[in-house]
Design a protein around this nucleic acid. Structure first.
Length: 674
DNA sequence: TAGAGATTAGTTTTT
DNA sequence: CTAATCTCTA
């Protein structure tokens, strides 16, 4: 790591009074510039609480907060970092929605639905029982929201039948969310935008809170996010947008490079500074990455260079199948670790899809090598955590029917499908007669009509359940979250239920994860002075619990390419380099190989010293063995910097390729196009 | 109503 | 070959 800033970096840090776009190539010291700039702004007298820094992932936000804190301490500004708004786009949107809930027509305890909550609702509205179809509709609705297209407009522009079904579901979905007093992730961006566009006073209020706005990974913004950003900065607030068009990998989430192209147009006095010196990778790694990305059309002309050593050639290794690949990678890693006296945390295994982690986990476990998975199933996707969160959501918001249903049967209370359906009917009927506000399942428990619809036994269970929730709700604002959580667990007998229904190992694991989660929440509530209701909303956006204090464990990092953005490792294994995986089949079919190429580029540029690429010749799919072709991207590297290992080719192919001069390359090309 | 076995579908990335 | 969903019985 360099000790002082280079000219371009210094320029980017000191240019603080007008719009600035920093085109920061991979490994060019981007985070360093952002944190140095934050420190610079504070020393220049900008109020820390008016510095708004936006990232895309929680991990990036956390890292930036930590590094900003360190930088500020160095410059003697103390803990100004604590006052700054360093958060993800969605967390910042949540802060706005929470503060403006009343104006937006939302109850203070509104729920935040994740895609899993929304799926059954959308499935029902789209009239399908097929999960894949429901998700396709969900994605479509998400795209509309990210493009700020309201249901009516979506309906108008729907051309084919699929779009028509989705547009109708979209309208129904919006109404359902309103009835549940819920918002989804996309709403956290779209609602503030809508608010700012109809309410100039609200816009001014939030603009006044921004003296300087910094956006990281600007190339990954979607239209809604860009609009939100523009409303925050208004006409006068200086900002720093940092991005790299070569690392745009979120097109599928509605991100568009148009936002990058639009910036100079929308801000005529925009200054553009390029960071082209790479401080991370060897010459060979960089040359290969540049060669690869050179196959994409470029938006901005940018040449990455480095003063670092030449380094070793990149190694490309084929494997018989995914097990062999995992074994090979782990074996090589173990050898390299011994040879270079490195630590486990110096290694990363990067792949396209989460499911690819399996084989590597198994191989690592077999060798007792510690590893950490980033991006896989998060703590908050586990059933036991979702159960607890359902209780919290229901306590905060009794209109949250999905949370009601979930909490009601975890643990089981003798209420099943039949009773739930009856309860639904009661609520439905009350909905019609009670003008305006529809009735929730929770409310239906107290409806007079319940007596005729549901037997006494189930009625008793329902009232007891609601009494528990009500009791906690009344205290949720004042009493510490920890005490309420303990009481919740005790009164529901959740741990006992786990012990009674699962085998010992499983029950123990889940109880442990519940305890950890509850302990974490309690500490968080204590530290930030938040009550249970506020914690509940925050939880929806968090994907990973912040590690306990102390340093990270010495473990190999397993990560998807998406989750690896922003990270760096001395030694990287990029695996599964096959046609259909990277580039992914769907992307090939959709004609979006460019984004896959950027994904590969992101993966390659994570590496500092060594980069190992591998692929499988066959792969098990649905139990069946299928042949795989090596990724076309392997043919796009700077071949003089690549060493092919083992024998990836049949004798026949090798002879032919040799005759052509460049043995491996030719054969690879043949295999790719085959 | 709840849990245990049968069945069947399954291609990607995240807030 | 999994893993999740569905069906059936106690």
């Amino acid at each position: 790591m360099q000790h002082s800033l280079n000219a371009a970096q210094r320029d980017a840090v000191q240019y603080d009074s007008a719009p600035l776009l920093v085109l920061a190539g991979a490994g060019s010291g981007k985070t360093r510039v952002i944190t140095a700039k934050i420190a610079h702004l504070v020393t220049r007298g900008v109020a820390p609480e008016k510095i708004v820094a936006i990232t895309f992932t929680n991990k990036a936000a956390r890292e930036m907060r930590e590094r900003a804190r360190a930088a500020l301490q160095r410059s003697g500004a103390g803990d100004a970092a604590a006052k700054m708004a360093i958060s993800t786009f969605h967390a910042y949107g949540l802060a706005i929605v929470r503060a403006e809930a009343r104006t937006l027509g939302l109850a203070p305890g509104f729920s935040i639905f994740d895609p899993a909550d929304a799926e059954p609702i959308v499935a029902e509205l789209a009239g399908t029982a097929d999960r894949a179809r429901a998700r396709a509709v969900q994605r479509r609705i998400g795209q509309w929201k990210n493009a700020l297209t309201p249901p009516a407009a979506a309906l108008r522009e729907a051309s084919d039948n699929d779009a028509l079904v989705a547009a109708r579901a979209y309208a129904g979905y919006r109404d359902a969310l309103a009835a549940y007093q819920a918002v989804d992730f996309d709403d956290l961006i779209a609602l503030p935008v809508a608010l700012f566009e109809r309410d100039a006073a609200a816009r001014a209020r939030w603009q006044a809170r921004c003296a300087h706005v910094l956006i990281d990974e600007y190339q990954d913004t979607n239209p809604a996010q860009y609009r939100l950003f523009r409303h925050l900065v208004g006409d006068a607030t200086p900002f720093t947008a940092v991005g790299d068009d070569d690392q745009a990998i979120y097109g599928w989430r509605g991100a568009t490079l148009d936002n990058l192209a639009a910036l100079p147009r929308d801000y005529p006095d925009l200054r553009v500074i390029k960071l082209e010196q790479n401080y991370r990778s060897t010459v060979r790694i960089l040359r290969c990455a540049n060669a690869l990305i050179g196959n994409n059309p470029k938006l901005f002309d940018k040449r990455l260079w480095t003063e670092l050593a030449h380094g070793d050639p990149l190694r490309v290794t084929p494997a018989a199948d995914e097990e062999a690949e995992a074994e090979l990678v782990v074996r090589r890693m173990a050898g390299q670790k011994f040879e270079h006296r490195t630590q486990f945390r110096d290694y990363a295994i990067l792949y396209r899809g989460n499911h690819q982690a399996r084989a590597f986990e198994a191989a690592l476990r077999a060798q007792s090598i510690p590893y950490e998975i980033s991006g896989g199933q998060s703590m908050f996707e586990r059933t036991e955590i979702k159960d607890i969160v359902a209780y919290l959501r229901l306590i905060a918001n009794e209109d949250d029917d999905p949370a009601f249903v979930r909490a009601l049967s975890a643990p089981k209370r003798g209420i099943g499908q039949t009773t739930l359906a009856r309860l639904g009917e009661v609520a439905q009927r009350a909905r019609v007669s009670a003008e305006g506000r529809p009735m929730s399942l929770f409310g239906a428990v107290f409806d007079a009509a319940l007596e005729t619809a549901v037997p006494a036994r189930q009625r008793a269970a329902l009232s007891e359940f609601c009494a528990l929730i009500n009791g906690l709700r009344h205290r949720a604002e004042r009493e510490p979250a920890g005490r309420l959580l303990d009481e919740l667990l005790r009164k529901t007998g959740y741990a006992d239920w786990l012990a009674a229904t699962l085998d010992r190992r499983d029950a123990q694991a889940r109880t442990q994860s519940v305890d950890y989660f509850v302990g974490w929440l309690a500490r968080k509530g204590e530290a930030d002075g938040r009550n249970l209701l506020e914690l509940t909303q925050m939880v929806a956006l968090i994907t990973m619990l912040e590690g306990r204090e102390g340093e990270a464990a010495d473990a190999v990092c397993l990560s998807t390419l998406h989750a690896a953005k922003g990270l760096e490792f001395p030694h990287v294994f990029l695996v599964g380099l096959e046609e259909g995986i990277l580039p992914h089949r769907e992307a090939i079919d959709a004609g979006n190989v460019e984004e896959e190429r950027r994904l590969m580029y992101v993966g390659m540029t994570r590496a500092e010293r060594s980069l190992h690429l591998s692929y499988c010749r066959t792969r098990k799919r649905a139990g069946e063995k299928v042949d795989c072709a090596p990724s076309r991207f392997l043919t796009e590297l700077a071949q003089e910097d690549v060493r092919y290992e083992d024998q990836p080719l049949s004798a026949d192919e090798a002879i032919k390729a040799k005759a052509a001069g460049n043995a491996r390359l030719q054969a690879l090309k043949a295999m790719v196009t085959k």
